[in-house]
């Protein structure tokens, strides 16, 4: 579990590590709200929606960022209010351990199968 967590953190870091560093407030709001589900819309992110709920949510995210909150803290805050359903990226916990690890286990398993089939000579 711990290794997987580190692995996912590293991947996350690599995927989101921005060499130019997004310092622009609007850009950060955009990044965060794209990862939030608009609860009253059908399959839309908060960013993509123009519903009352989504408009307020964008303001809240912006306000929290201005207060100096980190991205992660904002997700935690919203999860406490609305449950895990609101974030598009499921966090790694006992509930979602299999979600993250099944594909990786299958990948390793498949690799072993191929190694067994193939002769190295």
């Amino acid at each position: 579990m711990k290794h997987l967590k580190i692995l996912i953190l590293v991947i996350n870091f690599l995927l989101n590590f921005n060499l130019a560093h997004a310092s622009d407030l609007d850009l950060r709001v955009e990044q965060i709200t794209k990862n939030l589900r608009c609860l009253i819309c059908q399959g839309q992110s908060v960013y993509d929606s123009q519903s009352d709920f989504a408009i307020s949510m964008k303001l809240v995210v912006k306000k929290k960022l201005e207060e100096g909150k980190e991205e992660k803290q904002i997700y935690e805050y919203l999860k406490s209010k609305y449950g895990e359903w609101i974030v598009y990226e499921p966090e790694l916990n006992p509930n979602t351990f299999l979600l993250w690890s099944i594909p990786l286990i299958l990948f390793i398993f498949g690799g072993l199968l191929i190694v067994r089939k193939v002769s190295i000579k």
């Binding site: 996912i8 995927l15 990862n35």
Partner: peptide
């Protein structure tokens, strides 16, 4: 839980 784009991108 929601499994959205970030999950697929990460993996």
């Amino acid at each position: 839980i929601s499994v959205g784009p970030p999950f697929y991108h990460n993996l």
